[in-house]
Computed example of a mutant assay.
Amino acid sequence: MKILTIAPLALLCLLAVALSVHGYAYDFFYFVQQWPGSYCDTSSGCCYPTYGKPPSDFDIHGLWPNYNNGSYPSNCDPNNPFDLSKIQDLVSSLQPNWASLACPSSDSTSFWQHEWEKHGTCSETVLDEHSYFQDALNLKSMTKLLSCLKSANISPNGASYTLTSIKNAISTCIGHVPWIECNKDASGRYQLYQVYICVDHSGTTLIDCPIFPTGACGSSIIFPTF
């Protein structure tokens, strides 16, 4: 009886295809931070978490696995649900840095659950739940967006700034070009909402973005107070 063997290279190719089919393979992360003043300054408003108003600083939205072609995996493993006990030691850091502003008010746990189950499980071959949240906290400390902007005399004071000056301030600070997402305030004016920064496959190192998202943003945008 002849036993079929698969060459190591072919086996690796098959594994890559299998991972891609099941949504566990990805190329890089978008690390996304939002400005809470812009989240709240819309016609729908916001609700502070039950533990109090977050600091006047950029807030983590998520760490999102993406493909180089612009698509992304999601909800990759229903058998690995969010487990708060696995990140209990991080809660005191997550609450001020990764706060939910959605209504009704909450303790932000449902926000973290959503981010892990939709995005985090797609990186679980590299990051377990604890590593996923810890890496996001580390990336926020590494990027220091508000300090980057203030060093270029761009402050959350309700004034308008050019989109180019905001990008340049962040790029000069972190060494990589960010992508800026705007939303509109209650009067329909563009405002600085989210900043996308690209991170390598490990979730630890900033990189140049292989591809940027799409979306409209005015050439002059408001940086609202919070």
Rank of each mutant, 00 (worst) to 15 (best):
S171I: 05
T172P: 00
K144G: 00
V91E: 13
C103N: 01
E129C: 09
E129I: 08
P36W: 02
I166F: 00
Y132N: 04
R189M: 12
N68L: 06
K2M: 08
W64V: 01
A152H: 03
T205V: 08
P178D: 02
T42K: 06
I60F: 04
S106K: 08
Q33L: 08
P156I: 07
L137H: 01
P224C: 08
V195A: 04
Y161V: 04
H201Y: 15
E181S: 09
I87K: 07
D107K: 11
E181D: 11
T172R: 09
S147V: 12
L15K: 03
S123D: 02
L145V: 05
F111M: 09
N183C: 09
V199F: 06
S43R: 13
P178Q: 07
N153Y: 13
V32C: 03
P104T: 11
C217I: 05
P96H: 10
E115T: 06
W179T: 02
A186W: 11
P55E: 14
Q134K: 14
S38A: 15
D89G: 14
F133M: 05
V21H: 07
H61S: 02
N75T: 10
G203Q: 06
L127V: 04
H114N: 08
K86N: 04
S151N: 13
D59I: 10
I60D: 01
L192R: 03
Q113K: 15
H130I: 11
K53I: 09
G215C: 10
N68D: 09
C148R: 00
I3P: 00
V17Q: 01
G45L: 11
P54M: 15
T162K: 12
S44E: 15
Q34I: 07
F226S: 06
A136P: 00
I60G: 01
I221C: 08
P8Y: 12
C76M: 10
C47Q: 13
N168Q: 15
Q34P: 00
K118H: 03
D135A: 15
S43L: 14
H61V: 02
A102C: 06
H61R: 03
K150R: 14
W112M: 04
A159E: 15
K118V: 06
Q33R: 01
H176V: 10
S105G: 13
F58Y: 09
T205P: 00
C173M: 11
P104W: 12
W116N: 04
E124M: 15
Y190K: 03
S92Y: 06
C182P: 03
Y48M: 09
L94I: 05
E115L: 07
V21D: 08
P8Q: 14
G45N: 08
N66L: 13
N79I: 06
E129K: 12
L163D: 07
W35M: 09
Q33H: 02
C46H: 02
T214F: 10
W98S: 02
N69G: 06
M142C: 02
P210A: 12
T172F: 02
K2S: 09
E115V: 07
N69L: 11
S71W: 13
L9H: 05
P78C: 14
G203R: 07
G158P: 01
L11T: 01
N138Y: 07
G70P: 03
G218V: 13
S92T: 10
H201F: 14
F133E: 04
I6N: 02
C46E: 03
T5Q: 11
T109A: 14
F212M: 12
C47N: 10
K2N: 10
Y193A: 04
S100G: 06
